[in-house]
Write a protein that binds this DNA or RNA. Structure first.
Length: 117
DNA sequence: CGATTGACGTACG
DNA sequence: TCGTACGCCAATC
């Protein structure tokens, strides 16, 4: 049973998954894209985040980074230091625009949410 | 309407 | 291991 309100749009899915990212955790564009079934469209995830800023519902886009653990999109938060500040505020150590222990803090939707869900 | 860009990732050399 | 090339799809010029 699906909800009609479920946005089948790729962008809408990205927003939903992004909101599911737990506190103090981070994920990557590719992980979200892959979870949505469009692993090759990793760029679209980032593009969706660009529009997420104007959404009414807050989307923790600062928890979404590239697979290198680098805060590549920090310049899109209004201030280049805002993204890092938000991550540090959640207890995530960020050095030189890079998330420390990224591998350990990595939040994979396929695992955390369950592939069968 | 055509070409370029973009918050990425994978493939190839 | 590092550097370069290509693909993804949508938005912008």
């Amino acid at each position: 049973m699906k909800k009609k309100t479920e946005g089948d749009s790729f962008f809408q899915k990205v927003y939903q998954v992004a909101r599911l990212i737990p506190y103090g955790r981070v994920t990557t564009y590719g992980a979200i894209a892959k979870y949505l079934g469009t692993a090759g469209s990793s760029r679209m995830v980032g593009w969706a985040m660009n529009g997420a800023s104007h959404l009414e519902d807050a989307v923790p886009a600062h928890r979404v980074i590239n697979r290198n653990g680098l805060l590549t999109g920090k310049h899109h938060f209004g201030s280049p230091d805002l993204m890092q500040a938000l991550l540090e505020n959640e207890g995530i150590e960020v050095i030189d625009d890079k998330v420390q222990d990224f591998k350990k803090l990595f939040w994979d939707p396929e695992i955390e949410l369950g592939i069968r869900n």
